[in-house]
Design a binder for these strands. Structure first.
Ligand SMILES: [Mn+2]
Ligand SMILES: [Mn+2]
Ligand SMILES: [Zn+2]
Ligand SMILES: [Zn+2]
Lengths: 143, 143
DNA sequence: TTTATAATTGAGAATGATACTCAATTATAA
DNA sequence: TTATAATTGAGTATCATTCTCAATTATAAA
């Protein structure tokens, strides 16, 4: 999806919800799509500030919530107390491998595992809604 | 392993490390082995207080750290901001299924998945150290 | 059993990420 | 241009967990 289309989609969603299109909201959206990485709220806040748009941490958090809610972003919990956000646009489901040393994050998907999760849930009479699968270790460079 | 053996093992470890055997530390150990569940620090703190032993939250946290460090307990992050602790004694590795509604926790192991994780790590040149695999959904009762 | 001493404890303060409050500002539609 | 409801941001609150440090205690030597 082009960034223009994405931006206009976002505006449409905001309007549809009776929410306003503000420079802060646009800036957060732009920041999330610009850098394909797994970003902390603080990073995004600093990146926006270091440019032209005036923004507060509160607004960054609020906008990230909207983006997650509306399917534009995904929120990750890597267990270190700081949430990460990544774009969800053109980004199908995947899980993560995280380096314990340098923090590098690699994405992976394994259909076998995805399938098995469903079976395990079924065996225990659970209706699966989400899952977290994270592998932690040392990356090539950090071993 | 008998509770007596476990207690004496714990005392041995403490002594070996130059740490003191205190009623608070014993109480935390006892609490962790008494209830096989996935306990919050606050639960353990309350349970100990509601008995006879005087203890503080700080000491519960400190002792739980020791128990995890020395292999007597396991610390879980379920993504809700409160750590859970479970006994590691006679409890081989497993992962968890968590009910989004009532919080019920079920344990599972799947050797296939365990094996695949190793392969995935290898493919990405990672030396695997730990992993988190949690399935979230609705349990039979909550659907 | 004392004594010496280093380890431990607990009350309360600190931390850090995130959420909330509310007065001032702003986007939007009439 | 105006009316108004939504948004913003500064600062405060929250909540789990960690830290501080003076008072207490476990331990081992005498
Ligand atoms: Mn990712
Ligand atoms: Mn368990
Ligand atoms: Zn690394
Ligand atoms: Zn349930």
């Amino acid at each position: 999806m082009t960034n223009e289309k994405l931006l206009s989609d976002f505006k449409d969603v905001l309007k549809k919800e009776g929410l306003k299109v503000t420079p802060q909201r646009i800036a957060v959206l732009e920041e999330i799509i610009k850098d394909k990485g797994h970003r902390e709220s603080e990073d995004i806040y600093m990146a926006i500030k270091s440019r032209k748009t005036h923004v507060s941490r509160a607004t960054v958090y609020r906008t990230l919530d909207i983006l997650v809610q509306k399917g534009f972003a995904r929120k990750l919990n890597l267990g270190d107390g700081r949430a990460r956000y990544e774009t969800k646009i053109d980004s199908p489901h995947h899980d993560h491998i995280i380096c314990n040393e340098c923090g590098k994050i690699i994405e992976f998907v394994n259909d076998e595992i995805e399938k098995m999760q469903e079976e395990i849930a079924k065996q225990h009479h659970f209706k699966l809604q989400q899952h977290i699968h994270q592998l932690f270790g040392l990356c090539k460079e950090c071993q």
